[in-house]
Simulated scan of single mutants.
Amino acid sequence: MGRVTARRPVIRVRDGAVSERPDTLVAEEPLEIRLNGSPLAITMRTPGDDFALAAGFLVSEGVLGAAEEVARIAYCAGNTPDGSNAYNVVDVRLATGVALPDITLERHVYTTSSCGLCGKASLDAVRTRTRWPSVVAASAPGSLGMEMLKELPDRLRREQRVFDSTGGLHGAALFTSDGELLDVREDVGRHNAVDKLVGRALQQGRLPLGDTLLLVSGRASFELAQKAVMAGIPTLAAVSAPSSLAVDLATETGLTLVGFLRGASMNVYAGAERISLYGAATRA
């Protein structure tokens, strides 16, 4: 299996002094995801949690929604000269009777580590295919406290162990609505980190993820909002900005969307009713 980090030589310049030394970098390798033996997608990812990544990706594609819908996930054998497992190719076999959405039959997608899949950039596509629209849209007024929210970025950062050695990984964390940390994943791509979280939840039989909050270390793109909705997650928070399409999707589906979550400061772009905004803040 591939390594999470790699060592490469670097010339460092610090205050005019030049030195040579090895540096620890985050590893980035391609992963091909196959569905029932047919190529479906290639993503650039940090090796690790590959089966969860593949499962989470298929949740976001509307293929999977429960652990029992998966017959087997395995690395593909026979793709190397000696016939051993190829750790950059994962095949997901669906259980008997699981329907295959038409959209997945026509796509063989390459995605970079900085961008999720853009083939479904349509609000209608996501809204009509999510299995748990009522879970995402269910109103729980005031269930998220501001004191709890402002602590989450620091808690995520403390859990990013590989980031400490490389400085080059995104993080995604899943919390309960009262702030209990459920899981943290890291990856060179934000969307991969989220897929790993969702895939692990699927494998553990925890979908839909109602009464949870997804926190990401970067911006909130349409793809990340889409992945939250497809997993039944009612709240997405990001330490940076959302995109306009992410806000549109959140508004359409009932997703609570928070951006620029940095300490006591935040912007709430959709679903503000879930947050106790004025218990700890003064209305300007």
Results as ranks from 00 to 15, higher is better:
160 Q>H: 01
12 R>T: 12
174 L>I: 02
193 A>T: 07
3 R>F: 11
210 G>L: 05
54 A>P: 01
154 D>F: 10
183 D>K: 05
128 T>L: 12
90 V>G: 10
158 R>H: 09
87 Y>N: 05
243 S>K: 04
170 H>M: 11
110 Y>D: 11
111 T>N: 07
17 A>Q: 14
276 S>V: 13
172 A>S: 06
241 A>N: 08
80 T>C: 10
76 C>W: 12
124 D>R: 00
135 V>I: 13
81 P>C: 04
201 A>I: 08
237 A>I: 03
15 D>T: 07
33 I>H: 08
109 V>C: 04
161 R>G: 10
7 R>N: 13
283 R>I: 06
205 G>W: 04
163 F>C: 06
170 H>F: 14
180 E>T: 15
8 R>Y: 10
240 S>M: 11
200 R>Q: 13
173 A>D: 02
140 A>D: 15
72 R>F: 13
62 G>A: 09
183 D>V: 03
98 V>Q: 06
32 E>H: 12
248 D>S: 11
230 M>F: 08
66 A>P: 10
208 P>F: 04
186 E>F: 00
220 A>N: 01
247 V>T: 10
175 F>S: 04
53 L>G: 04
102 D>Q: 09
140 A>W: 12
44 M>W: 14
200 R>G: 12
267 N>W: 01
142 G>C: 05
188 V>P: 03
21 R>Y: 07
152 L>N: 00
187 D>V: 04
169 L>P: 00
181 L>S: 02
140 A>E: 13
95 A>K: 02
218 G>W: 00
20 E>R: 09
242 P>H: 03
27 A>Y: 01
229 V>Q: 00
32 E>F: 11
233 I>V: 14
140 A>I: 12
260 F>S: 14
198 V>R: 02
6 A>Y: 13
277 L>N: 02
267 N>M: 05
21 R>I: 12
45 R>N: 09
182 L>T: 03
171 G>K: 01
212 T>P: 06
182 L>I: 08
113 S>M: 06
226 Q>L: 09
83 G>T: 02
181 L>N: 03
76 C>E: 15
38 S>V: 15
184 V>K: 04
136 V>G: 00
205 G>Y: 03
190 R>C: 14
267 N>Y: 03
121 A>W: 10
148 M>Q: 07
159 E>Y: 02
177 S>Q: 15
92 V>H: 02
262 R>I: 09
108 H>L: 13
20 E>C: 10
